[in-house]
Design a binder for these strands. Structure first.
Lengths: 154, 154
DNA sequence: GGTGAAAGACATCCCAC
DNA sequence: GTGGGATGTCTTTCACC
């Protein structure tokens, strides 16, 4: 379900997804609304689930996880049992930041946070010990040009 | 640079990257620290940049951007001028949530947020009008098994 | 949509231990 | 590290235009 947002709602969303540490006063000033009107809209956006939550973003390098890998996975078992087993296997692997079932000839893509290449091998061993995968390959991030959680709000 | 964290710091980071809307009182209770000690650590983690910031996460479906695409890009111009032009081209495309230069035979991976497949075509046209790309292909997300901003803190 | 006011919660920063 | 406490700010909810 999609909602209809006016320019105030959009401005609030755009601002909060860049910086959720703003006080209501600051936020209301930036979006050109009174504090009360702004507060009412923020609460409504939170209650309706448009704002899924607020989180702290952590510098992965500073906590010893500088390496990002994209792991491309193919399976030869295209049934829901395999998918469920796969999901269960992933839930025990905190390094996995995202896991998507895809269109096209690659079946799944994972984004994985790691300490180093040796850490990838440990991750790989743990994953393949949990579930049978017909084809798996990894590619590592050398450089981030862009990396944001922001959703485009047009 | 990597820091040394004790179990309290780790608990704070793990908690805040799940939910940054907690009050200091709630946070300190969860990590089993006094309010004061907890407050000092949070401030220090913010000041040192381990906590990069706090953001609101927005439900992309509810703002009309339900489709995620991974765009795989190859270039035949492996020089820094192309990389800079590419970065400049991307900065004008708010749909791009992340863009990484990769190891291996695919040169760049983009994660792009879109309204629908027709929107991808518009995105594609705008991108190739800005920069020459020797090979580009897209794969679309059918299903998210996992999608989090959390960094594993071990 | 806007104002202002008021109660309480919360963050902030002391201090002493 | 802990706790108490003073201070001011921010949130939240009113009633009302």
């Amino acid at each position: 379900m999609t909602y209809e947002f006016d320019d105030f709602d959009k401005a609030i969303l755009r601002t909060l997804q860049k910086d959720a540490s703003l006080s209501m006063d600051d936020l209301s000033e930036r979006v050109h609304l009174s504090r009360n009107a702004c507060w009412r809209r923020v609460k409504q956006l939170e209650q309706s689930g448009v704002v899924r939550g607020r989180v702290a973003l952590i510098d992965a390098r500073k906590v010893g996880m500088p390496l990002t890998a994209f792991v491309l996975i193919r399976t030869d078992q295209h049934d829901s049992a395999w998918n469920q087993n796969f999901q269960k296997a992933l839930s025990g692997l905190p390094e996995v930041q995202s896991a998507h079932r895809m269109t096209g000839d690659l079946d799944y893509v994972l984004r994985v946070r790691l300490a180093d290449i040796a850490d990838y091998d440990r991750f790989y061993q743990r994953l393949v010990s949990k579930i049978s995968i017909s084809d798996i390959s990894a590619s590592f991030v050398m450089d981030d040009l862009i990396d944001t959680t922001e959703v485009p709000i047009l």
